[in-house]
Design a protein around this nucleic acid. Structure first.
Length: 221
DNA sequence: ACCCAGGTGGCCC
DNA sequence: GGGCCACATGGG
């Protein structure tokens, strides 16, 4: 049965990565709200830069829904400058906070009560929230089991030979169809793929010591 | 002096 | 519906 192969391979790769890198305990943040803010700030941006922006926000006492709603746009821009695209992202943060306060009164608990599919549609309506940011928020801030796809996931999946497509939802469905729907495993898997991408499966790959070398079609040509 | 990083929205055809 | 492009800082 060729259809059972991806399942075994996906689970095997997960186990090998987990053994190699250990538990990742993602998302690095103090609160779920901070996760949501970080998810917007990290769009196409190095996490180190995001940490600086978040530190600035905390220093200004601006890392709360009410605080971000009130803060002057220009002031917000200057605080998040290190994270890049700072004018765009300031607008996006404002749009998200407006939604969060309007729909849920800034209550994470209320938001968590809502069905994941409904939330996903809502989030995608918010300016600046695309599929990856929506899924990151759902998975890491709201504990909704949805698989997060990012640039690393695409690159690794294609290189390893798991799939040939590059469409976000196709890849997302590939993982969800071939894995059991377990919240903690989804969190770890995405984090582990990022770790693999950062350390081995980069744009300039370093395959010689890659932990999943034996499962990679690409490295074997 | 390049290239890259935990994407998204707006155009154009 | 797919293919470009702007968006921007900081580190290698």
């Amino acid at each position: 049965m060729p259809t059972s192969r991806p399942k075994n391979k996906l689970l095997k790769i997960y186990k090998v990565l987990f053994k190699h890198f250990g538990p990742q305990a993602w998302w690095p943040a103090e609160t779920p709200f901070e996760v949501m803010v970080g998810a917007i700030l990290t769009q196409n941006t190095n996490w180190k830069n995001v940490e600086k922006a978040i530190a600035n926000l905390k220093g200004a006492g601006g890392l709360g829904a009410k605080g971000l709603e009130r803060i002057d746009l220009r002031k917000l821009e200057s605080l998040i400058k290190p994270s890049g695209y700072y004018r765009q992202k300031a607008k996006k943060l404002k749009a998200f906070v407006r939604y969060f306060l309007k729909e849920y009164g800034g209550s994470l608990r209320k938001m968590r009560e809502v069905d994941g599919e409904k939330l996903r549609k809502e989030l995608l309506e918010v300016h600046g929230i695309g599929p990856e940011t929506a899924d990151s928020i759902l998975l890491y801030a709201l504990d909704k089991p949805t698989f997060v796809v990012d640039a690393y996931t695409k690159r690794i999946g294609n290189r390893v030979g798991l799939f040939k497509f590059s469409d976000y939802h196709e890849i997302k469905e590939f993982f969800e169809k071939n894995l059991s729907k377990e919240l903690e495993m989804y969190k770890e898997y995405h984090a582990l793929l990022v770790e693999l991408g950062k350390n081995y499966c980069k744009t300039k790959p370093e395959c010689s010591d890659c932990p999943i070398r034996r499962y990679c079609d690409w490295v074997r040509h």
